[in-house]
C-alpha cells in the first residue's frame, strides 16, 4: 500500500491539480480534500497548494484559516502529521500560527513570476530529506505577497534552531555564471524562502516545487520532485 497524500482545494486554489499530479509522479496516491470537509479521509500527509484562496480578501490566507478542513489539519499537524504549504498554502500556515511570521506585499509591489534559485538550508525535515544540505535547486516562483517578515527575536530563533528550510540563493561570485533567478525577489527578511516548525513535520515555502517534477514541462528540471519523494520515504519508513 502506498502513501495517501491529501491535497486541499479552497475556493480560489489554483495549483491543486498540479500538486496531485506531482504526488502521483513521485509514486504516492493523491487524495483530493475539500475545504468544507473536516474529514481528512485518513490521509498520511497534507499539502496546501498555491492560488488565491477566498480571493486573498483581508490578507492572503486569513479566511482559509477558518475553513472546516483547517481545523482538522491544524489539530493533526500538532499531533505530528506532515503538512506542506506552498505559496498561498504557506500563507495559510502562518495565519494559523502553525508556522511563525507573516507574508506581506513584495517590496517592489510587482507580481514576480520566474524560475528561482534556492539554497536548501535544512535537509532533515519530513519534506526535504531527499535534498542535500546546501544544495541549490531551481523551481518556479509566482506571487505578489511573498515578503516573509517576523520580528528579530523570531528570526534569531529560526536561525538558531535550523528552522530556515530554504533561502533565496545569492548569485555565485563567479561572474561568468548566468545570474538569472538568483537573489531575493521580494524583500523577505534574511532571504527566507521557506521555514519549518520545530518538529520538522510542517514546512512552508513560497516557490512551487509541484511545477518542477517532470523534465518535459516547466523549468525542464525536476528539482521540485524531492519534496514529494522525501515525504513518501518518510511515510513508508514510518
Amino acid at each position: 500500500m502506498t502513501a495517501r497524500i491529501g491535497v486541499v482545494t479552497f475556493p480560489g486554489t489554483l495549483d491543486d491539480r498540479d500538486t496531485q499530479r506531482a504526488v502521483r509522479v513521485a509514486g504516492a496516491e493523491p487524495v483530493p480534500l475539500w475545504h468544507r470537509d473536516k474529514d481528512l479521509k485518513q490521509v498520511d500527509a497534507v499539502v496546501l497548494p498555491g492560488g488565491f484562496s477566498y480571493g486573498d480578501y483581508l490578507r492572503a490566507g486569513a479566511i482559509s484559516r477558518f475553513s472546516p478542513v483547517m481545523e482538522t489539519v491544524v489539530e493533526q499537524a500538532r499531533a505530528g502529521m506532515p503538512v506542506l504549504g506552498i505559496c498561498n498554502g504557506f500563507q495559510v500556515l502562518t495565519e494559523t500560527h502553525l508556522l511563525p511570521g507573516a507574508m506581506l506585499r513584495n517590496t517592489d509591489l510587482h507580481f514576480v513570476c520566474r524560475d528561482q534559485k534556492l539554497r536548501v538550508e535544512n535537509a532533515s525535515t519530513a519534506w526535504t530529506a531527499d535534498y542535500e544540505q546546501g544544495q541549490e535547486i531551481s523551481i518556479p516562483l509566482k506571487n505578489i505577497d511573498g515578503r516573509y517578515v517576523a520580528d528579530e527575536r523570531v528570526l534569531d530563533e529560526l536561525e538558531a534552531e535550523g528552522r530556515v528550510a530554504f533561502r533565496y540563493a545569492a548569485a555565485p561570485a563567479d561572474a561568468a555564471a548566468p545570474a538569472d533567478g538568483y537573489g531575493n525577489p521580494n524583500g523577505s527578511l534574511r532571504d527566507i524562502a521557506g521555514i519549518t516548525n520545530e518538529a520538522g513535520n510542517v514546512v512552508g515555502l513560497m516557490p512551487h516545487p509541484e511545477h518542477a517534477v517532470e523534465p518535459l514541462i516547466g523549468t525542464g528540471r525536476t528539482d521540485g520532485l524531492g519534496f514529494f519523494t522525501s515525504i513518501l520515504k518518510n511515510l513508508v519508513a514510518a
Binding site: R105, N106, T107, L109
Partner: peptide, 13 residues
C-alpha cells in the same frame, strides 16, 4: 495599521 517597524511599500508609492 502595519506596525511602525514593518516596511510599507504601498504607502511609500
Amino acid at each position: 495599521m502595519l506596525k511602525p517597524e514593518i516596511l510599507d511599500p504601498q504607502g511609500q508609492a
